[in-house]
């Protein structure tokens, strides 16, 4: 009888607790691990960079160490008025992106909602998507000169087509039954669009914006190194002329940081605005 119904002492349980393994498919890891690993990758990166700079594989002028780059960054802000360049760049990215969204959001939603609108615009949008934006630079220079307009136009062309496509796809993915629910409750086409299609697609539209804003930052440098007048890219081109590699690297660092901040802000906005969703995807 004792064999059939045997209780296992509670203390045994401790020994059978599953061990945390370093490599486990798709399983969550403790927050402390995440933080440590996230910091570690940067420590390793800076260490390799510093070692490379010390080793002398390249002349110090072409490969300054991280310390020199940070010093250059400080000098740029403190003495060379770099903040003005940064603000010009931020302004260009923001303005062009707002203009792109103002066109892409309504158009993408209409394309996703109505097959007729999609059939009309889709061949056009798809074709433009395959044209590399930088190939328009000579044209834009001739049309708009070397000023702000040319840069804004390039940034606009760089993101608009993908933005439209992504938003149209997210709108298309809105569950048919949600639309049918509204329709069978008496919703008109405009009501369904306004009260179901838009709110249902909106969380994913914001995600699409976040992704394309990152792309916009990559086009910024391309826009600013051609016909450089002001901006982060322009500073980097000036630095190249005087072989200030530390300043060029400082510029790259700043663009990276700004991109990260944008990404974080949109992520926070998403989490705040769409609290009703199950989880952030």
């Amino acid at each position: 009888m004792t064999q059939a119904l045997r209780t296992i002492p509670a203390t045994r349980a401790k020994d059978t607790r599953p061990k945390l393994r370093i490599f486990e498919f798709k399983s969550e890891i403790p927050a402390s691990w995440r933080l440590t690993l996230g910091v570690a990758v940067w420590v390793i990166f800076f260490a390799i960079w510093q070692l490379a700079a010390w080793s002398g594989v390249m002349p110090a002028i072409l490969l300054p160490g991280p310390g020199k780059v940070l010093t250059a960054l400080y000098t740029l802000f403190a003495e060379s008025g770099f903040l003005g360049d940064v603000l010009v760049s931020v302004w260009r990215v923001m303005l062009s992106f707002v203009l792109a969204c103002a066109l892409a959001v309504p158009l993408g939603i209409l394309m996703g909602a109505f097959k007729t609108v999609e059939a009309f615009f889709s061949p056009f949008v798809s074709a433009w998507r395959y044209l590399p934006a930088p190939s328009f630079i000579p044209l834009l220079l001739m049309w708009f000169g070397a000023g702000d307009a040319q840069k804004l136009a390039l940034l606009f062309i760089g993101v608009i087509w993908f933005l439209i496509t992504l938003i149209a796809d997210h709108t298309k993915a809105v569950q048919k039954d949600l639309i049918n629910t509204s329709v069978t409750l008496g919703g008109s086409r405009l009501q369904v669009l306004r009260t179901v299609v838009v709110p249902a697609a909106l969380p994913n539209i914001v995600i699409a914006m976040r992704q394309m804003l990152a792309v916009s930052w990559t086009y910024l440098v391309i826009a600013e190194i051609t016909a450089a007048d002001a901006g982060i890219g322009a500073m980097m081109m000036r630095a190249k002329r005087f072989l200030h590699v530390d300043q060029i690297m400082a510029g790259i660092l700043v663009i990276g940081l700004l991109g990260l901040i944008c990404d974080y802000l949109l992520r926070a906005l998403h989490a705040q605005a769409f609290q009703y969703l199950d989880e952030y995807s």
């Binding site: 569950q175 039954d177 949600l178 049918n180 629910t181 069978t184 179901v196 709110p199 249902a200 769409f274 009703y276 969703l277």
Partner: peptide, 11 residues
């Protein structure tokens, strides 16, 4: 109409 899938608007 009430559908088989869940159609409560999540927002």
């Amino acid at each position: 109409m009430v559908f088989q899938s869940y159609t409560s608007f999540p927002w």
